[in-house]
Design a protein around this nucleic acid. Sequence first.
DNA 1: CTGTTAGCGCCTTCAG
DNA 2: CTGAAGGCGCTAACAG
Lengths: 356, 356
Amino acid sequence: MDDSTPAEPTRRVTLADVAAKAGVSVSAVSFVLNGRTDQRISERTEQRVQAAADELGYRPNLTARTLRTGRSGTIALVSDFISTTSVANAMVRGALLELDRRDTMMFAVETQGEPELENRLLHSLLARDVDGVIYAAMFTRVVEVPPILTGLPLVLLNCVPATPITAVPAVVPDEQAAGRAAARVLLEAGHRDRIQFLGTFPPGMVGAPRWHGWQPMALADRLDGLREGLRAAGASLAGCTTVTDWEVADGVRAATEALSATDRPTALVCANDRLALGALRAARDLGLRVPVDLSVVSFDGSPLAEITEPPLSSFALPQEEMGRQAADLVLATRRTRRVHRVPMPLTGHTSVAAPA
Amino acid sequence: MDDSTPAEPTRRVTLADVAAKAGVSVSAVSFVLNGRTDQRISERTEQRVQAAADELGYRPNLTARTLRTGRSGTIALVSDFISTTSVANAMVRGALLELDRRDTMMFAVETQGEPELENRLLHSLLARDVDGVIYAAMFTRVVEVPPILTGLPLVLLNCVPATPITAVPAVVPDEQAAGRAAARVLLEAGHRDRIQFLGTFPPGMVGAPRWHGWQPMALADRLDGLREGLRAAGASLAGCTTVTDWEVADGVRAATEALSATDRPTALVCANDRLALGALRAARDLGLRVPVDLSVVSFDGSPLAEITEPPLSSFALPQEEMGRQAADLVLATRRTRRVHRVPMPLTGHTSVAAPA
DNA sequence: CTGTTAGCGCCTTCAG
DNA sequence: CTGAAGGCGCTAACAG
């Protein structure tokens, strides 16, 4: 009832406990458990220590170790909206899988695109001795790297630094290569002079307003690659249909317009999957069968691409692999400064066929 | 060239630095900065300390504080596949938003449903002095709470404990209420005796095999609620169409079957959005217009529900709010043990109309 | 080969 | 009202 020694909440076993049990000094235990070879320890004590540690179920207190060594075995994924958006969270998985192999834990943090929040969060992370930071964006774009992060191992994920001087490695999808591949896919199917791009913005408009005015890089790169791919074969784009946003409704509208023109295109390259879904719908409403009467190619490889009818030929953002590489880089001892471009695999590939 | 004092990498400013600058003792600084009132400090020293701290840009080292106090200002979100699946990541956002208000950082961790991995990760988290754990599941189900977690503030998110004895609070969507609401929506539109449920599994089958054999709770609860809602109005379900998975193709198949029957249903209640999308497609192929000739209700409120034609009347999983509540509970001092059921709002609501 | 010792930066009891 | 001192658990010099 009135026990003077209240049920001690199972105090964690410490190095000293192990040392006591093994009958050696704390440092000896530390040496053994950290597998250091610079100080030789007798076989016998080593075994005693191991036995004692196992028996007691010893786990080192990482907080104490961090305080001592300055390294925490911890990194942070600082993103604008990544865990929110579902667009990009395979990146998180890739990072986690790689980090697990390196015994590193990850703080997840979202800045909501707000500088003050970002600043606060970064300070909080630094105060916790994170060993590195992956600075990530929901969609590929140029970012201003917060100055506080200089000096810390830093990798940009799905974004590139505004000032290229900043010698920071970045991991991005290889959009241009995907654009070229899109050209190749259509050329090989027999398309050539009636390939239309769908999803450019009208002059002066860089993107939808709710994107904080951030400029997505995907459009320019995909289009560049596509054009280059066509040019390499002596072909060129029949034209571009502009939109004011990248949603399904915009795709319907734009595709209806494009497909109603005389000399209707035989293939549409859509800037993303949502536009492509709209295009499929427009085609159906116009009585066009995909891919028999019209081929459609798009980008993102989102879940959407799998549930359309037919499934889209879409170049997928290699998010998991990007996340993996970012984690790998942030833990790498040798610093690199390259931009790592990760290939975008073609998924589905059932919405392309030879032109009628 | 041969500078004996190599450019010191901007050593972090410490309590002692502030004390020195302010000309007071470390403890005085600690008192002021932690706003303790039990020891009175003169107005003047307080100001001097504040000034010195501000000027030096002092930030407490949280690792040291953790070692001292045992509390880290850190929790962990331990999930099976949450950040991977995109099904559920609004939960992460909700949690992060709430945690930010409490100056707490979050470790994100995925167990991939593998016990050994889970065990390893949990040990690693405990070794880092996390103040609490949110144990989350990708889809609502019963979980076995790992014993290591007892003693730590713990909240189940989107799951409930296998042994109800375990006095652990849980946050789940209120599926039964959503089921009842689905009944109400249809009854109010004028449907009554020809309401069909779509998405039960054949006897002996609890779920798709790739779900680790985990039993989802959604089906039973949604169906129960629906039945109860109908019964309360003196109506009842016309029947259930079974499927072997919850994908689009299954929806097409099942809906085609259901809609081809004599005495075709006037309304379909689909177990989730993907099935509903399939149902929409089947209806279209059969020449039925939604919602004029057929009403469709579903559950999940996934992004899918917004891009169908028409957008689905879908009861949305309140993921963000669930995440918020879980974070709130894990930081709460007063322990609760209730199951918190969060309402599922009806979204879209354009696929229901009066029967023909 | 092993043990002693001095911190890492902070909080907090206890003297002054 | 303020300062000195101990210790959280661990690592790594440095003696023995």
